[in-house]
Amino acid sequence: MITYIGTPQIETNRLLLEKFVLSDAQKVFDHWISDERVTDNRVSAAHTDVSQTVERVAGIVSQYEKEDFCYWAVKLKDSGELIGEIDLYDFDEATGNCEVSYSLGYRWWNQGYGTEALRAVIEFGFRHMNLHKVAAAHNTDNPASGRIMSKVGMVQEGIVRDMIRNSKGQYKDCAIYGILEGEYFSKGDGF
């Protein structure tokens, strides 16, 4: 049975994962959600006006009262700069499984931040939420995301053809990854 505890702050070597606040909207807009280099890897289109982002962040903030809502702002610990987001979602009570997704601003790609944030959220899920499996997917034309998943011990389980349709109407194949609780604990903290 999944143990829900909401969105507590998580600290890593270089990052703080914490709840969004309404005043984050401008930085979300500026740092990733208006950047097509980032949003091409998401289902939803790039925001063209900050009011769209304000509405989105307000929607996230309004759900923090729910214990089964796990959605973090990813911030650099030393500067407090907001660089991305990561969430656990689509919880299945029958199996104890869920999914994870993440986005980082382009400026912070290829610096290990995605790996660090994903590792922390997976650890949180297995150690504190009693999850059985955490799954993720990435567009096959975004192999860097697959490398992040592999670095944290996730295993590619297959490819789903035309799994998503992006905002430009293009269908995209997605690689599906997963890690089981038993795999996580058998690999220890050093994976």
Rank of each mutant, 00 (worst) to 15 (best):
L16H: 14
Y64I: 02
F20R: 04
S150H: 09
W109N: 02
L76C: 08
K151T: 01
V100A: 02
A136F: 06
G59T: 09
R42H: 14
V134L: 02
Y184P: 03
P8N: 08
H128M: 12
R119G: 08
T3V: 13
L82F: 07
N166M: 04
Y64K: 06
T53S: 14
V152P: 00
M129K: 02
D30E: 15
S44E: 15
S167V: 03
C174T: 11
M1D: 11
D40S: 15
P143V: 06
E81D: 14
V152A: 00
Y89A: 04
F29W: 10
Q26N: 09
R127Q: 13
E93L: 14
T3L: 13
V61N: 11
T95L: 12
M149Y: 01
C70V: 07
L76A: 08
M1K: 12
K27F: 05
N13H: 11
K168L: 15
H132R: 10
D141A: 12
L88N: 02
H138C: 15
R42S: 14
R37P: 00
K19G: 01
E11G: 00
T12S: 06
T39K: 08
F126W: 09
T140A: 07
M129T: 00
Y171E: 10
S62L: 07
S186K: 11
K168W: 14
S103I: 07
I179P: 08
S145A: 11
K168I: 09
R147D: 13
R56T: 05
D40W: 04
E36Q: 13
Y106K: 10
R147A: 12
V100M: 02
E85F: 01
L82P: 04
I164D: 14
G146H: 13
D49W: 03
D78K: 13
R56S: 09
Y64M: 01
Y177M: 02
S101L: 04
F185H: 09
Y113T: 06
F29D: 02
C70K: 01
E99I: 00
A120N: 00
D24Q: 02
Q52R: 12
S150M: 10
G178H: 09
E81K: 13
P8H: 10
L118N: 02
I10S: 05
A117L: 07
L118H: 00
S79Y: 11
I86S: 04
G59N: 15
F29V: 03
I10N: 04
G105F: 11
K151W: 09
A94P: 04
Y113P: 04
V43I: 15
H47L: 03
F29T: 03
F69M: 02
I86R: 01
L76W: 08
T115I: 04
E99R: 06
A58G: 05
S23A: 06
I83H: 07
G153A: 06
S44I: 12
A73F: 03
G169S: 13
F185R: 08
E116L: 04
G114Y: 03
N142K: 08
W32H: 08
I122D: 05
I176Q: 14
E11C: 07
S186H: 10
V50M: 06
D90N: 15
Y102A: 03
G105E: 06
R165T: 14
G190R: 11
H31M: 15
I60W: 12
V121F: 04
S51C: 03
H47G: 00
